[in-house]
């Protein structure tokens, strides 16, 4: 097997060469391009850096493999985009589907509609019934992913993929992992804990609490230019 490889690679190279010659592009003489600068955030533009050379088309004939449409596992995954947006994707196996629709009387599945039920489970041990509050997102029928707009930063959410039956009852197909949205502002917790670390993580705590300079610093922190830089390339959010 191994002895065939050089031959294979050799013939692949010849083929590449032939193809490369065949597809040789018209000579390009355009100028180096400068990306457009967005005027969206006037005060603090992102790092205006095209770190690397501008892209130019080249003839790469490598085939791009297709990835599987499904992995044969039941999963509903919840991810954080920012303090107010979650992203979820899911995969329901045929087995799971049959299992659920099999429990329903005929025709009921067809007349139900797909929703994502979003639970606020901040600070609780969620058992499926004790959420602080919840809301539904109606799904377009063939959806297998969804962006969810959530009301509050710094809250813990969990999502059920399910169906709402004509009588209004909800059946859960899959339950997601839990995520906590990031804060989008300064914390109101002023109680301070300090830690002394010496050598290899020797730990001794001492409580310190004095008002000090919070107000003045907070004033400086008032306007926060987030994402001044974006790494690597110029970011074209326009």
């Amino acid at each position: 097997m191994t002895s065939f490889l050089p031959v294979l690679i050799g013939s692949a190279l010849v083929l590449l060469l032939v193809l490369a010659l065949f597809f040789r592009p018209a000579l390009r003489t355009e100028k180096a391009k400068k990306p457009k600068v967005s005027g969206e955030s006037p005060a603090f533009d992102e790092e205006y850096s095209v770190e690397l050379a501008e892209p130019v088309r080249q003839n790469i004939i490598d085939t791009v493999p297709e990835l599987p449409g499904s992995y044969g596992m039941d999963r509903l995954v919840l991810m954080i985009r920012d303090p107010y947006w979650l992203y979820s994707y899911w995969e329901v196996t045929a087995t799971k589907m049959d299992e659920i629709s099999g429990h329903l009387s005929p025709g009921l599945w067809e007349s139900s509609r797909a929703v994502l039920r979003v639970y606020d489970v901040t600070g609780i041990d969620f058992d499926g019934h004790n959420a602080i509050c919840s809301f539904d997102c109606s799904l377009g029928s063939p959806a297998d992913e969804w962006y969810i707009n959530v009301p509050s930063a710094n809250r813990t959410y969990c999502v059920d993929l399910g169906r709402i039956l004509p009588d209004g009852s909800f059946i859960t197909i899959l339950r997601s992992n839990m995520v906590t949205t990031p804060r989008d502002n300064l914390s109101d917790r002023f109680d301070e804990e300090w830690m002394w670390i010496e050598g290899l993580y020797f730990r001794q705590q001492m409580g310190v609490s004095s008002p000090l300079i919070i107000e003045e610093l907070a004033e400086r922190m008032g306007k926060l230019p987030l994402g001044i830089s974006s790494p690597g390339f110029y970011n074209p959010h326009e």
């Binding site: 992102e46 991810m79 985009r81 920012d82 303090p83 906590t180 300090w194 974006s230």
Partner: peptide, 25 residues
């Protein structure tokens, strides 16, 4: 300075808008 305040940092990145959107959109 071996003595510092204890707090859990906020989930964040240095990308545009400060969170995950650049890498999840």
């Amino acid at each position: 300075h071996g003595c510092n305040q204890v707090a859990t940092p906020c989930a964040s990145s240095w990308g545009h808008k400060g969170y995950n959107e650049v890498w999840l959109c």
